[in-house]
Every structure is written in C-alpha cells, then in structure tokens.
C-alpha cells in the first residue's frame, strides 16, 4: 500500500472509532469529560512506559484505560461530594495532566514521546512505524492498534447496545429495572480512554477531542434515530480524515489539523443547512408558515 493510503486508512480508523464512541458522549452530555480523559491518558501512557519499559501498544492501552477510569472516577467522587461538575472535571483534568507532563519531561530522554508530539500527534510518521513479526512487515502498528480498538468498541456496543441506550436516556428507569448504570458509565469511559490512546499518535490529544465530539454533534443534527446517528457520525469521521488528508496535501499544512478543520467545516455546514435542526430549515419552516397565512 502506498504511503498516502496508509495515512488515509489510519485517519479513517480514528474517524470511525471516535465518531461512534463520541455519539454517546454527546447524548450523555459528557463532552467535557472526554476532553479531560483525552488529556489525562498522557499520564497513563507515561506510567505504562515507566512500568513496562516498552512502547508497545498493548501497554499503552492498559495504562490509558486505567488512568481514564481513574479520571472518570475522581470526577464522579468530587461531583457527588458537592463540587460543581465542571469544576470537578477541571481540577482532575489539570492535575493528572500536569503530572503526566512533569513525568514526561523528567524522563524525556528515555521516552521517545515528546510533549509536542503527544499534544499534536504526527500522522506523517505513522507509515514508517511498522509492526514486524518474524521479519514480516505487517504494516503500520498504529493501524493494527486502531483496528483492534475499533473492533473492541464495536463488539462492546453490539453486546451492550440496549443497556447503553437506556442508561443514556433514562438512568433512573435503567437502575430500577436492574441495569448496572455505573458499570455502563465506566465501560463507556474505558472505551473513550482506549480510543483516545489509539488515536493519540496520529492526531494528538487536542485534536482527538475534535474527532470525538464534532462528528457526533453533527450527526445529532441530522437524525432522530440512535443507530443512524452512530452510522452518520462514523461516516463524517471518515470523511474528515480523507478530506483532511487531501486538503493537507493541497495546501501543505498539518494533516491532523486539517482533519479536525474539515470535521468543523462539516459541522458548520450541517448546522446551517440541516433540514431538521439547522438554521436554513428553521427559516424555511417559518417562511412556509407565513406564506400559508398570507
């Protein structure tokens, strides 16, 4: 496969995973928590490296998963003990992230990650960092990791679909009929954490938030069905990745930045043009009412 094709594949996998998981964040009004987790997983990555002395994907996923859950847990604890929830997120987020940055700079010589790379990502290098087993070149390791995470996400959503749905829509009812709402919450948070980590290398901590939130927010404007929202969101994720790659080629700009910008552009257009919830739809509806009256 060509260099460009690998980058497009990587970006698309990021787009699909983030797009799907992000829908649930939108519906549960937890965009801010995703923002927090996308930063605190940095601590997970550094700790995973310090413990395992390896940059293998699996250690990163485990480390990020644990720190992601810790973030969600600490936010929950502060929240239920009376701290305002946005303040709770802010405190946990900045503390854990700061710890991650300190550790990273203290051990910078040993870890091949640097802060800049972690924050901004570097999809350009993805195709060269390949997975080799017994001397066989199996393609970029980021693609393997992203593929694994995508499949895991899809399996979890498939099996827990109705539980995730009801605990997002009506947590009280869900609890009453015996669905472990707390477990589902942490399950989703784990999915956010591992998705973030897998996407990290390619798009970086800051832009992964864009990929998590923007496609879902766009899809929300376009449909009234959860399952269709998930599909649209995934498609927008892919479209942002592909569009972003070509835009970056054309104007010689950062690939990850341009992916996030395309996602933002799609959102903007949808917001204006969406027949259901968009500005244009509202104007048209108003006009058709007023013409009926005149």
């Amino acid at each position: 496969m060509s260099y460009g094709a690998w980058i497009i594949l990587t970006g698309s996998l990021v787009g699909v995973s983030c797009g799907i998981v992000g829908c649930f964040l939108i519906l549960r009004k937890m965009a801010m928590l995703a923002d927090a987790i996308s930063h605190t997983v940095l601590l997970g990555i550094v700790l995973a490296y310090l413990v395992s002395h390896s940059l293998e994907g699996i250690y990163m996923l485990v480390g990020a998963g644990i720190i992601g859950l810790l973030t969600a847990f600490l936010v929950q604890v502060l929240d239920t003990s009376g701290v305002q929830s946005d303040a709770a997120i802010g405190v946990v987020f900045t503390s854990l992230f700061a710890l991650g940055v300190i550790l990273l700079s203290a051990f910078a010589g040993k870890v091949h990650l640097d802060v800049n790379h972690a924050l901004m990502g570097e999809i350009t290098f993805i195709p060269w960092d390949t997975l080799t087993i017994n001397g066989m070149d199996l393609g970029p390791s980021a693609v393997w990791m992203l593929g694994f995470v995508l499949i895991l996400n899809l399996i979890l959503i498939f099996f827990f679909y109705k539980e995730i749905k009801i605990s997002s829509f009506d947590p009280a009812m869900a609890t009453a009929i015996g669905i472990p709402v707390i477990f589902i919450h942490y399950l989703l948070m784990s999915m956010v954490s591992i998705t973030t980590v897998a996407s990290f290398d390619s798009v970086g901590a800051i832009l992964v938030v864009a990929m998590l939130i923007v496609p879902g927010a766009t899809a929300y404007l376009l449909t009234d069905r959860l399952i269709i929202m998930l599909c649209i969101s995934a498609v927008i994720g892919v479209a942002s990745a592909v569009g972003g790659y070509y835009a970056a080629l054309a104007w010689n700009i950062s690939i990850s930045g341009s992916m996030a910008s395309i996602a933002g552009l799609i959102f903007g257009l949808t917001f204006i043009l969406s027949p259901k919830h968009g500005l244009l739809g509202k104007v048209l509806a108003r006009r058709s009412i007023s013409t009926q009256h005149s």
């Binding site: 519906l27 109705k162 539980e163 749905k165 009801i166 997002s168 829509f169 009506d170 009280a172 009812m173 869900a174 009929i177 015996g178 669905i179 929300y220 449909t223 009234d224 069905r225 959860l226 269709i228 929202m229």
Partner: peptide, 22 residues
C-alpha cells in the same frame, strides 16, 4: 426526568419497558 431530545421514537421508548424481561 429525561431528555426528550434523545434520538429515539415513541415505540423505542415503550420497548425499554421490556428490557427488564429480555
């Protein structure tokens, strides 16, 4: 107590009444 903007329809909500039995 719930968000009525959730992307779902009436039948789907009523089906949630079955979840405890499924």
């Amino acid at each position: 107590s719930v968000d009525w903007d959730f992307p779902t329809n009436a039948l789907d909500v009523v089906l949630m009444g079955r979840y405890g039995h499924i």
